[in-house]
Design a protein around this nucleic acid. Sequence first.
DNA 1: AACTTGCTGTGGTCCTACCACAGTGAGGTC
DNA 2: GACCTCACTGTGGTAGGACCACAGCAAGTT
Lengths: 262, 262
Amino acid sequence: MPEQASTGALDDTVDTVDTADTVDGVVDAGWAPVTKARTYELVLDRVEAQITSGRLRAGDRLPAERDLAAALGVSRVAVREAMRVLQAMGVITQSTGSGRDAGTVLTAAPGEALTRLVRMHVLLASVGTADVVRARIALERESARLAATHARDSDHALLAEHLAVMDDPGCSPETFNDRDTDFHVTIAHASGNRLVAEMTTALRNAMRGTLLERLRGEDDFRSVAARLAREHHEIHEALLAGEGARAADLVEAHIEGFYARH
Amino acid sequence: MPEQASTGALDDTVDTVDTADTVDGVVDAGWAPVTKARTYELVLDRVEAQITSGRLRAGDRLPAERDLAAALGVSRVAVREAMRVLQAMGVITQSTGSGRDAGTVLTAAPGEALTRLVRMHVLLASVGTADVVRARIALERESARLAATHARDSDHALLAEHLAVMDDPGCSPETFNDRDTDFHVTIAHASGNRLVAEMTTALRNAMRGTLLERLRGEDDFRSVAARLAREHHEIHEALLAGEGARAADLVEAHIEGFYARH
DNA sequence: AACTTGCTGTGGTCCTACCACAGTGAGGTC
DNA sequence: GACCTCACTGTGGTAGGACCACAGCAAGTT
């Protein structure tokens, strides 16, 4: 049916025909340049509409790319590009093969997407390290505050495990950094607030490389590690005691302290 | 040159050839399934590497899609899908036409990308409204605290303008909602912390629809608007006085109050 | 009953062709 | 000479068709 250039069901192509024009002598009332939306964006809109209307929800399977393309009257390329965007947002997962669970499935996994986004912008110097630190503090304060009342036994067990590894004097900077990340991420997820947790995780992960470099460049890695470990223990104790406000203050001092001193 | 299936410079295609195998009788030492990375991800890695190494920075122009494809030894489709991802992350902007500034340009604009990401996940019920509210409070407290010392005269002027519009008794719920958003966003950007600002903006924008619905459904919109406006004025006064802590508390009460009461 | 084998549906990749748009510059017109 | 016109060129945008790799399933074989 499409014989070239969208003919099908997707002709919302024209967005605005409104006001103002800049062409030479023409009257500038009631005219605006006609802006065309790219086809893949229209596909995105359709998918979003399906979600909004409740016809599509997490766990559901999307039509096959070919079918979707045919149904919307666009090419498969357009559909694929829309899928790439959704994937980059952590909204879908794709896999090959046949069978019920194969293909494109709606799954809400914002974590990885956020991490990549933040890391990319840190690399681009679009946001500075100091900014990330302040954002981390704001979020992790909230994480800690909530975790003090929401954390379960399994969370505390996990935290204890991470602490034990970091206490080991033979622990390398790499291992320490990984477990440090895990410690903070565990607290974030114990908060029970998914959004705060994912954002916290993303920021901490995006800083992973930077932090590792600092740890490696440390003159006396062991004593620094010991101090950080001690602070971790204090935070954990505050959480166990259910003292959210104190935990939040400790976390703030912990994060700020590391950056301020190095 | 590529006669089908990647032949070119991008043959990192094979990721791991390591340990363990599950095939029936075969010795399970030293074998693992070969996992292939998707081509567009390899392209992404190359772009990220260029940024990391400093050969590419914000404002720079990327090679034309065709050239990049040739240089990397992949198809244009692969390059285009990588571009879609970068665009979805707010890392590039694309435009047609010729000339120096046409084509693909590295520009760090995380705001819109974040907004879409959060909105999508709110729609998917991956994160609940209450979670977004708590996250907003955490971030906007920080925004307000920083804005109290960093805001310039132009910021205060903008804030005053928004306040004036919201004070107008004839102001519609739509207009009020828009200006309310603008008010919070202006504070966020006045904080001087780009990351906090972008995240704040994203959350506020993602909630735009929800908030508008609540305002519209209000029995006595005018009195609610009047109360919100009064709170806005108090916040503004705290900012003008440079009292960050008070501004933060007011913002928290302001946000939480609205959700708690409705 | 257990294994093998081929079929089918899915995303992954590539190529090629063409369209729409925006500068650029050569050429014509006044 | 100054100005306008218009074709050219480089860019992303789109379409369509072909083939590959993979995973499940079912029929056939041992």
